[in-house]
Computed example of a mutant assay.
Amino acid sequence: MLTITTASISHSLPPSPTPAPAPAPTATPQTPNLHNSCQPINRRHLLLTSLTTLSLASFSVSVSVATARGLLQMPPPRLGNRYFLVRAGESEYDSLGIINTNPVTKTSVDSGLSEKGKKQAVRAALELKAMGACERSCWIWPSITQRAYQAAEIIAAVNGVSRSYIVPEYSFLDARGLGAYEGKKLEAVSEVYESDSISSTIKPPPIDDGTPNESVADVFVRVTQLMSILETQYSEDTVVIVSPDSDNLTILQAGLVGLDLRRHRDLSFAPGEVRYVDPSSIPTYKQPASAVYKCLNPPNCN
């Protein structure tokens, strides 16, 4: 029987070689040792990985931005929400037969609803209820102008809508600024509409009291911006737009249905009138003679 001892093994094995010096580090990345917490970090690899991740994230963001909705095109191919247009009732200034469009006074009590205007706002609220506008809830977007906001509160109360669903609009729904016509009799506004029928870019004469002098095209920009916000902020909701005047609504509706903006007056809203927006209903009309006729001194034209 062969017996192997430790001594015999030690004599039979060759002497242990002298340990060779550790090789100099090279640029070749080493396989990471998951069991050794002191393993050096390959910073180049980490940086390349991070850049790749950031590039993919940036690409994802760019795709999201590219598919986001922007400024609404008029007339729109479709609308994502259901809209009702409401003109606030008669104001105190209207009852006196005076033009008042200066935004400085839009929150004053004098810009509020007259007694007749309050009744008109109640009728508008009841008409919206009969139309089922807010049966499944709705958002009410009034101008911050006193009479429009008062009308919105009446609409909310009659239709059982919480005040938290009233969203005041601070500039896009301001009454159209009529410049030098400010303070004149209401009948004088017919001169403005004569100019509108000639060109959508004619402005009323200016004035230095802070009242804007807005053309139809100016108002069109405002209401288009408003619709762009609503179409982006909501989806498949009902929105009730409450304007202090008629021009905001007629210009908006003309844009939505593709009507020549010079004919916006044909869509005039009476105080307290309610109208459902149907973009598929495009009125038939003839191009006005002003398409070829130029007025050199509006509104005084022969």
Rank of each mutant, 00 (worst) to 15 (best):
residue 1 M to D: 09
residue 1 M to E: 10
residue 11 H to Q: 14
residue 12 S to V: 04
residue 15 P to R: 10
residue 15 P to L: 11
residue 16 S to P: 08
residue 17 P to R: 11
residue 18 T to V: 14
residue 26 T to K: 10
residue 26 T to M: 02
residue 30 Q to Y: 02
residue 30 Q to T: 12
residue 32 P to D: 04
residue 32 P to E: 04
residue 33 N to S: 12
residue 34 L to I: 11
residue 36 N to W: 12
residue 45 H to G: 01
residue 45 H to S: 12
residue 46 L to I: 09
residue 59 F to M: 11
residue 60 S to R: 10
residue 60 S to Q: 10
residue 62 S to I: 10
residue 64 S to E: 12
residue 64 S to F: 09
residue 64 S to P: 00
residue 65 V to E: 13
residue 66 A to P: 00
residue 68 A to R: 13
residue 69 R to F: 07
residue 71 L to I: 14
residue 76 P to Y: 10
residue 77 P to N: 09
residue 78 R to K: 14
residue 81 N to Q: 10
residue 88 A to Q: 04
residue 92 E to M: 11
residue 95 S to A: 15
residue 97 G to E: 08
residue 97 G to V: 06
residue 103 P to I: 05
residue 103 P to L: 04
residue 105 T to G: 01
residue 107 T to P: 00
residue 114 S to E: 07
residue 118 K to L: 09
residue 120 Q to Y: 03
residue 122 V to R: 13
residue 123 R to A: 13
residue 126 L to S: 08
residue 130 A to H: 12
residue 131 M to Y: 05
residue 136 R to L: 05
residue 139 W to C: 01
residue 140 I to L: 10
residue 140 I to A: 05
residue 142 P to Q: 07
residue 145 T to P: 00
residue 145 T to F: 03
residue 146 Q to R: 15
residue 146 Q to H: 12
residue 150 Q to I: 04
residue 151 A to I: 03
residue 153 E to R: 15
residue 159 N to M: 05
residue 162 S to E: 15
residue 164 S to R: 14
residue 164 S to P: 00
residue 164 S to E: 15
residue 168 P to M: 06
residue 168 P to L: 08
residue 168 P to Q: 07
residue 172 F to P: 00
residue 173 L to Q: 06
residue 175 A to P: 03
residue 175 A to L: 08
residue 175 A to W: 00
residue 176 R to M: 15
residue 178 L to I: 05
residue 178 L to E: 02
residue 179 G to N: 04
residue 180 A to I: 04
residue 184 K to L: 12
residue 185 K to F: 02
residue 187 E to W: 03
residue 190 S to F: 02
residue 197 S to E: 15
residue 197 S to H: 10
residue 198 I to T: 06
residue 205 P to R: 10
residue 206 P to Y: 06
residue 206 P to N: 06
residue 206 P to E: 11
residue 207 I to Q: 04
residue 212 P to A: 08
residue 213 N to C: 13
residue 214 E to P: 05
residue 215 S to A: 14
residue 219 V to W: 04
residue 222 R to S: 09
residue 228 S to D: 07
residue 232 T to V: 06
residue 233 Q to N: 09
residue 239 V to W: 02
residue 239 V to D: 03
residue 247 D to Y: 00
residue 251 I to K: 02
residue 251 I to T: 07
residue 256 L to Q: 03
residue 257 V to D: 04
residue 259 L to D: 04
residue 261 L to A: 11
residue 264 H to V: 01
residue 265 R to H: 11
residue 269 F to C: 08
residue 270 A to G: 06
residue 273 E to D: 14
residue 273 E to N: 01
residue 274 V to Q: 03
residue 280 S to Q: 11
residue 280 S to C: 02
residue 281 S to Y: 09
residue 281 S to D: 10
residue 281 S to G: 00
residue 286 K to R: 13
residue 291 A to E: 12
residue 293 Y to N: 10
residue 293 Y to A: 14
residue 294 K to R: 14
residue 298 P to E: 03
residue 300 N to C: 02
residue 300 N to P: 00
residue 302 N to P: 15
